[in-house]
Simulated assay, not measured.
Amino acid sequence: MGSTREGQDARDRDEEGRARSARPRDGLGRPLPYGAAGVERQPEGVVRRPRESVAEAQALLDAGKPFHAHEVFEDAWKSGPEAERALWRGLAQLAVGLTHAARGNLTGGPRLLRRGAASVEEWAGGSGRWDPYGMDLAGLAGWARRLAGEVEESGTAVDARAAAPRLR
């Protein structure tokens, strides 16, 4: 059962009344104590054009914020056409895999990187498109598998900024 803070419900809520933690987050999306200075969060539910999603996610990856890039991909997954949902879900998995690898999750990070690689390859194979919106899906899948192997072999967390992929 969640603990309450003085004068607040047990669960934080957004404007629509949905449960959403108001705790600040660091650059890798980890919750910080209430009142701590955190990284500005990505707004949820933003509908962007696909190329805008790719550009925004790349800027976040370049800044070492893969958790936030995952949220951009998640918005595209939830708001995009049904035929592209597996693509955006796979890209979100790649970003979450990098997030976990940077947090030091040496099992979950590689697992998510490989799952994301398989998802984007499966989507591309079924769609016949390896470069949607200018993205290099084959290159991303290769990056993810290499990084997964490096994390497992080294047994250490990665620097999210230094390990970030190039989407295009």
Rank of each mutant, 00 (worst) to 15 (best):
E15K: 13
D14G: 07
D159H: 00
S21C: 07
A144R: 12
E52A: 10
S119G: 12
R13M: 11
A144S: 14
Y34Q: 00
L87Y: 12
V54M: 02
A22P: 04
G35Q: 00
A59K: 09
E16I: 07
A118S: 07
R13W: 15
W88Y: 08
N105K: 02
T156L: 10
R25Q: 07
A101M: 08
L94R: 05
E150V: 10
R51W: 13
R48A: 11
P110W: 09
G108M: 02
D14H: 08
P81K: 02
R48Y: 08
D12M: 06
H100L: 13
E6W: 12
G38M: 11
R146E: 15
W130M: 07
D131W: 11
V120L: 14
A57W: 04
V158R: 05
A102S: 13
R166A: 09
M135Y: 02
G64K: 09
E121R: 10
A164G: 06
A10N: 05
Y34F: 09
D26I: 10
R111S: 14
E15R: 15
G29T: 01
A164Q: 09
Q93A: 11
Q42C: 00
G155I: 13
A144I: 06
L140E: 03
W77C: 07
A138V: 03
V158E: 03
V96L: 04
P165G: 08
G7L: 08
R23C: 13
W123P: 04
A157M: 02
G45I: 14
G45Q: 11
E74W: 09
A164Y: 08
A10D: 14
G142A: 14
A76E: 04
L61W: 01
H70Q: 05
M1P: 04
P33H: 12
A157N: 04
S79H: 15
S3A: 04
R146W: 06
D131H: 02
G97D: 11
V47T: 10
G27T: 02
G35I: 08
P66C: 01
S119L: 05
A148L: 05
A144N: 07
